[in-house]
Structures are given as structure tokens and as C-alpha cells.
Amino acid sequence: MIISMTGYGKSVQQLPQRKITVEIRTLNSKNLDLNLRIPSAYREKELDIRKIAAAQLSRGKIDLALHVENTSGKTGQKLNIDQIEQYIDQLSQIQNLDASDKLKLVEIATSFPDVFQNIEEEIEDSEFQIVLKTVNEALDAVNDYRETEGSILQEEFTNRINNIAQLLDDVIVDDKNRLDGIRTRLEKAVADLKEKVDENRFEQELIYYLEKYDITEEKVRLNNHLNYFKQTMSASTSQGKKLAFISQEIGREINTIGSKANHAAMQQKVVQMKDELEKIKEQMLNVL
């Protein structure tokens, strides 16, 4: 099966006083690149969340965001009284400000951003278990998304591989006519010389010359690689790296056929095969 590295998943849990939301986005990457964005109160639990995400999403660039919204009506913040008093003392020293007008000084002092402190609450284990449940549900949604995208990629790869196989069949037909044509041209060239030649020596040289253009081995290997690619796609797990290696071998055989072709019709089909393979390689970057 083919699994894409591109995915998205979201899960929401509503508690009596909190709303927990987990969003996960994944993109392609050679290795696991896991980025977590979680509230500071959950920092000590980050490793647990990271292990769960890494176990289910083995590769890719992954952004996991945990949002915890307070729905109890409490702000979760308190005034930093010491900081406010320091601002008031400093403001009262400014010319044209009356230290007796403390209300005005307080109003100015509380406009600064660092006069409020977040109230750090200890996370209860029961709440964290719900957070983990939400993370797992989001991960399940991501994996479902990846599998759906993967099935589309697999259909695309199958069509491209079948196109290359059809072009290879056409090349095999052209190849027979090509070798017959080369032999005829060489025999005509020798006949035009109007010189007597050693027939045995001529036949040996002709065989040697034709062997340089023989693509029998390349045709067999290319066909085997195409079949191996389809077999690997049907494996129980996604084999992105392995398929990439097979794609390289397919490209090597296509290039060799092209270098030996010396035939316009075959060269055109080789170009078409390269185009199909290039489209496979572009999409292969997204395969897990």
C-alpha cells in the first residue's frame, strides 16, 4: 500500500471548564521532524506527547498544536502588584505628573504588558489522559487522511508504470525493425564499395557491431523493475524509500536503452518513458 506524508487531523474535547483542541499537519520530509506547540502548563508532559506522535507518524514534517481554552469564565491571570508599584514610583518622578493622583498613575502602570501574571495550574492526571485521548484521535484522523491520499498516489503510479510498460512493448517492436535495418544498410554499404570482402570476417564484424546496439538485457531488466515496483506498492506497509530506489533503477535502464537506440522512433518512446518516470519521482517525495 501507499501512504502519503501529507495529512491533516483535528480532534476536540469539551470538559466542564476547558476546551481541548489538537490539530496536526504533516508534510513530506526525509526524516521525522516533529514540532510541538503546547501551553506552558503542559511542558512537563511534552515528552509523552512526542513519543505517541513519533510512534504513529514515522516520517514527515509534523506540526502538532495543543490548544487549551478556559471556558470557566476565570481569566487565569493575576496582577503583578510588585511590578505595578515599581511603575507607579517611577511614573511619579516624571515632571508634570502629580503623585497624589494615584488613580491616574495606576491606569498608566497597568497599561504595560508585564503587569499580569499567568496562573500556573497543576495538571491533574485525569485531565492529561483526556489530552492524550484527544491527541490519539487527531493522529487517527491524520493517518486516515494519509491513507486516502496514498490510494490516489498509488493509482497515479500504477497508470505511469503501465504507460512505461506499454512504451517498452512498442520499443521491442521497433527494435526488431531497427536491427534488420542496420544490417541491410551495412550490407548495402559494403556492396557499394564494389570490393571483394571476406564473408566470414564481415559476418563477425557485423555481429560485433550489432551487439553494441543490442538492448535485450536492458529490456528484460526494465520489465523486471516495473513488475517489482508494482509488487512493492502492494506490500502491507508503505515502502517509499524502496520505491525511490526502484525508480532509480528504472531510470538507469531507460537511459541505457536511449543511448543504444540510434533510432528515431525508439528515441521518441524513450523520451516519453523518461517523462512518465519523472512524474513518478515528483510524487514519490510525498510517499511514506
Rank of each mutant, 00 (worst) to 15 (best):
96 N>S: 14
157 F>M: 09
118 N>L: 10
146 R>T: 06
152 I>Y: 13
107 E>F: 05
159 N>F: 11
97 L>F: 08
126 S>G: 01
91 L>H: 10
82 D>Y: 13
140 D>I: 04
141 A>N: 09
97 L>T: 01
110 T>I: 14
114 D>N: 08
91 L>F: 08
154 Q>W: 03
157 F>R: 01
159 N>Y: 13
140 D>L: 05
118 N>Q: 08
119 I>G: 12
83 Q>E: 05
125 D>S: 09
114 D>E: 03
110 T>G: 08
134 T>K: 03
118 N>D: 00
119 I>V: 06
83 Q>I: 06
86 Q>F: 10
137 E>A: 13
141 A>K: 15
114 D>Y: 03
152 I>S: 15
141 A>T: 07
161 I>V: 13
138 A>F: 12
95 Q>C: 09
158 T>H: 12
84 I>D: 06
161 I>K: 06
157 F>V: 04
98 D>Q: 08
103 L>C: 12
148 T>A: 09
102 K>L: 11
116 F>L: 07
83 Q>H: 13
82 D>N: 13
129 Q>W: 06
88 I>P: 11
123 I>K: 00
122 E>W: 02
140 D>N: 08
136 N>E: 07
129 Q>H: 09
106 V>E: 14
93 Q>M: 00
99 A>G: 14
100 S>Q: 15
156 E>I: 11
100 S>W: 10
118 N>H: 13
137 E>P: 10
135 V>E: 03
121 E>L: 03
153 L>Q: 12
98 D>P: 00
134 T>L: 05
145 Y>C: 07
109 A>S: 00
147 E>H: 15
95 Q>D: 11
135 V>R: 05
82 D>C: 07
117 Q>C: 07
156 E>W: 05
113 P>K: 04
141 A>V: 00
115 V>M: 01
93 Q>K: 14
112 F>H: 01
85 E>D: 07
160 R>H: 03
145 Y>G: 02
148 T>F: 04
126 S>L: 06
137 E>R: 12
82 D>A: 15
129 Q>S: 15
97 L>V: 02
140 D>W: 11
98 D>K: 01
97 L>M: 12
91 L>E: 01
116 F>Y: 07
90 Q>F: 13
149 E>H: 10
124 E>V: 13
137 E>I: 05
150 G>H: 07
89 D>T: 14
86 Q>C: 07
112 F>L: 07
105 L>W: 03
138 A>Y: 05
140 D>G: 00
83 Q>P: 00
155 E>W: 08
158 T>L: 09
99 A>H: 14
117 Q>F: 01
109 A>H: 05
119 I>D: 02
143 N>Y: 01
135 V>Q: 13
126 S>I: 10
161 I>T: 06
150 G>D: 04
156 E>R: 12
99 A>D: 15
